[in-house]
Amino acid sequence: MNLKVGLIILTSALIPVLNFMNTEDQTPKDLPIQGTWQLVSGVTIEKGKSTFTDYKKDMKQIKIINDTHFAFFNHDLKQGKGPKPVFVAGGGKYTLKGNEYTEHLEYCNYREWEHKTFSFKLTMKGDTLIQRGLEKDEKIGVDHEIIEKYVRLKD
């Protein structure tokens, strides 16, 4: 009888340990990032200089994320008729492990950005998503850190 009680206690103690150790194969469901997000602000840090952008002022950008892919669309609010017309679109596959989010940009209207990989750390607070990481590629002449703030769009 004491052997059975000892095995039950040992098994009960091992189950949480085994569950804790089984965190290697994390899936995109770790952070609830699937959905449509609107970029509201961003900070670009390049050569020690920070530039803040309010994306609600003159443009609108959304990012759509499903289980395997992301896409983003950015355009000015004057339908291209202002002094600085903007339209940017891109997308591809992504991976998510814990808060490590990596975009594999497969499509982009700035074609030199295609087939680049960018890694970010994500932070979520309610319906706010913060994406922070480096965009660096010598071939396209980009080397800066970005911090972007998104809010989840409701249906």
Rank of each mutant, 00 (worst) to 15 (best):
I65M: 02
K84R: 13
V86W: 07
Y55C: 01
K63G: 02
N66Y: 05
G80Y: 12
D58K: 04
T53R: 02
K57P: 00
D67A: 12
K57H: 03
F70W: 06
F70R: 01
A71R: 07
M59A: 08
K57S: 02
T53C: 01
T68Y: 13
I62D: 02
K81G: 07
K56S: 04
M59V: 07
N66S: 10
K81W: 11
D76W: 06
K57V: 00
L77H: 08
K57R: 07
I62V: 11
H75A: 15
K78M: 15
M59F: 07
P83T: 12
K84I: 10
H69C: 12
D76H: 06
F73M: 10
P83R: 03
Q79S: 15
H69Y: 10
Q79T: 14
V86M: 12
D67I: 03
Y55D: 05
V86R: 07
K63L: 06
P83D: 15
K56V: 00
M59S: 09
K78E: 15
P85F: 12
T68G: 07
I62R: 03
M59P: 02
K84C: 07
D54K: 03
L77F: 08
D76L: 08
H75V: 13
T68I: 11
T53A: 06
N66T: 09
T53E: 01
D67M: 10
I62N: 05
P83A: 14
P85T: 05
D76E: 10
P85I: 08
